[in-house]
Simulated scan of single mutants.
Amino acid sequence: MNASTMPPRDIALALVVILVWGFNFVAIKWGLHGVPPLLLCALRFLATVFPAIFFVKRPRVPARDIVLYGLSWAVVQFGFLFSAIQVGMPAGLASVVLQIQAFFTLLFAAGMLGERWQSTQLAGLLVAIGGLWLIGSAHGQSMPLPGFLMTLAAAVGWAFSNVVVRRMTQRVPSVDMLAFVVWASLVPLAVFAPLSFVVEGPARVLPALQRLDLTSVLCVLYLAYAATIVGYGLWTWLLKRYPANSVAPFSLLVPWVGLLCAALLLDERLLAQQWAGSLLLMSGLVLNVFGGRLIARLRARVA
Rank of each mutant, 00 (worst) to 15 (best):
V127Y: 06
S142T: 08
A244F: 12
S4A: 15
F25Q: 01
A248Y: 07
R64I: 12
A110T: 04
V205G: 03
V254K: 05
A110N: 03
A128C: 06
A91K: 06
M1C: 13
R241I: 10
L189E: 07
Q141M: 12
M177S: 02
G233M: 05
A63D: 13
R44E: 03
A94M: 09
R269L: 14
V97F: 07
G157C: 10
V286H: 04
A14M: 08
P255T: 12
K240C: 05
R211D: 15
A138K: 00
C219D: 01
V289C: 10
A155S: 07
A47S: 12
R116P: 00
P37H: 13
A179M: 03
G284N: 04
G157F: 04
P207V: 13
L132W: 07
L46W: 10
Q210H: 09
A208R: 02
V163W: 00
S119Q: 14
R297F: 12
L145A: 03
R64Y: 12
A179P: 01
I53H: 07
I100M: 08
V302T: 14
V67I: 11
V181K: 05
V172S: 12
A109R: 03
A52R: 11
M150P: 00
L113W: 15
V198H: 13
N24H: 14
A91S: 15
P90H: 12
M282G: 08
A42L: 08
F197T: 04
F104M: 06
A14Q: 05
S216M: 09
Q77G: 06
P7V: 12
N162E: 06
H139F: 12
Q101A: 10
